[in-house]
C-alpha cells in the first residue's frame, strides 16, 4: 500500500520521512522538496507527475541514492541510506536499485549483451553464471536474439528494452524509471509500459516512475502529483492516500 501521510507501517519497503531538498544557486536557496513522506510496499507501482521543476527527478535521485537530502530520511528494506558514505551508497545502489533513463544511456561501444552484463561485473558471479543471467534478462524483454547487436543497430524501443534488461539483471530491490517513454513514439511507449507492467505483475518488481505523459501514468497503481516540492494530489484505486504531513 502506498501512503504519503507518514503513517505507513514500519515494514514498508521504502519509507520516506520529512524529506527536504534545498539547492543553493547564486546565493539564493531553492527548496525543491518539502517535508515529503512516502511509504511504498514491495510490488507497488508508483507514478510521479508534475510540471518541470516540481522536483520529480530530484525525488527519484534521492530515492536512488544519487543525491543526498537536506533533511529527512529514506529507508529501503531496513537500510537508512541518508547517512551512508559515498562508497557504501555506491555499493547499496549496485545491490538495490535498477535505473531506467529517458535516453536509455547504453554504452554505444558495447553490445546489448555486454551492456546488460555491466551490473553483474560488480558481483562475484562466474562468467557462465553472468551469461545465464544476461540471457534470462534479455529473454524477459524479448531481445534474446539481439544480444550481439550494438545500440546503433537497435530501434529506440529496443534500446530502452535493453536498458530495462540492464536494470533488472541483478534482481534489484526496486526500479527507478525517469521518463522511460519520453523519447519514444506512442507504439514503442506502449510496448515499454506493457513490459514494465509485466515486471510488476508477473515478477513482483517495485517500480517508481516519473512521467509527463498521463497515458503512461495511468499504467501505475497510483499516480502522485508533485507541485513546487509538495505532494499535493493523488488518486487511484486500492490505495490509501493522505495529505502532506
Amino acid at each position: 500500500m502506498i501512503r504519503v501521510d507518514g503513517t505507513g507501517k514500519s515494514n514498508s519497503l521504502i519509507q520516506v520521512r520529512g524529506l527536504d531538498k534545498t539547492y543553493r544557486r547564486g546565493g539564493e536557496e531553492i527548496q525543491v522538496l518539502q517535508r515529503l513522506n512516502l511509504d511504498v510496499d514491495k510490488g507497488d507501482f508508483v507514478g510521479f507527475m508534475g510540471p518541470s521543476g516540481s522536483g520529480k527527478t530530484t525525488l527519484l535521485n534521492l530515492l536512488g541514492g544519487l543525491d543526498v537530502p537536506t533533511h529527512g530520511s529514506i529507508t529501503v528494506a531496513g537500510d537508512e541510506i541518508t547517512h551512508m558514505s559515498g562508497n557504501k551508497l555506491t555499493q547499496w545502489r549496485a545491490r538495490h536499485v535498477g535505473f531506467i533513463f529517458q535516453m536509455y544511456n547504453l554504452i554505444p561501444v558495447l553490445t546489448a549483451f555486454q551492456n546488460v552484463e555491466l551490473p553483474l561485473l560488480l558481483t562475484k558471479l562466474s562468467k557462465s553464471e553472468r551469461r545465464k543471467h544476461v540471457e534470462t534478462a534479455l529473454g524477459v524483454v524479448g531481445l534474446a536474439e539481439r544480444m550481439n547487436h550494438y545500440p546503433r543497430q537497435l530501434s529506440g524501443g529496443q534500446e530502452q528494452r535493453v536498458a530495462i534488461a540492464r536494470a533488472i539483471v541483478a534482481d534489484p530491490t526496486f526500479l527507478l524509471c525517469d521518463e522511460p517513454t519520453g523519447d519514444l513514439d506512442r507504439k514503442s511507449a506502449d510496448e515499454i509500459m506493457e513490459l514494465i507492467h509485466r515486471l510488476v505483475k508477473e515478477y513482483g518488481k517495485t517500480v517508481l516512475m516519473v512521467t509527463h505523459d498521463p497515458v503512461v501514468a495511468k499504467r501505475a497503481d497510483l499516480t502522485l502529483h508533485l507541485e513546487k516540492g509538495l505532494l499535493v494530489e493523488s488518486g487511484e484505486l486500492g490505495v490509501t492516500v493522505g495529505g502532506v504531513a
Binding site: G86, T90, Q91, R93, F99, N105, L118, R166
Partner: peptide
Amino acid sequence: VGELAVLKAIGFSG
C-alpha cells in the same frame, strides 16, 4: 561523461 555517470549510477565506484 554520461556513460561514466551511468556506470557510477549502477554501482561502479569512483
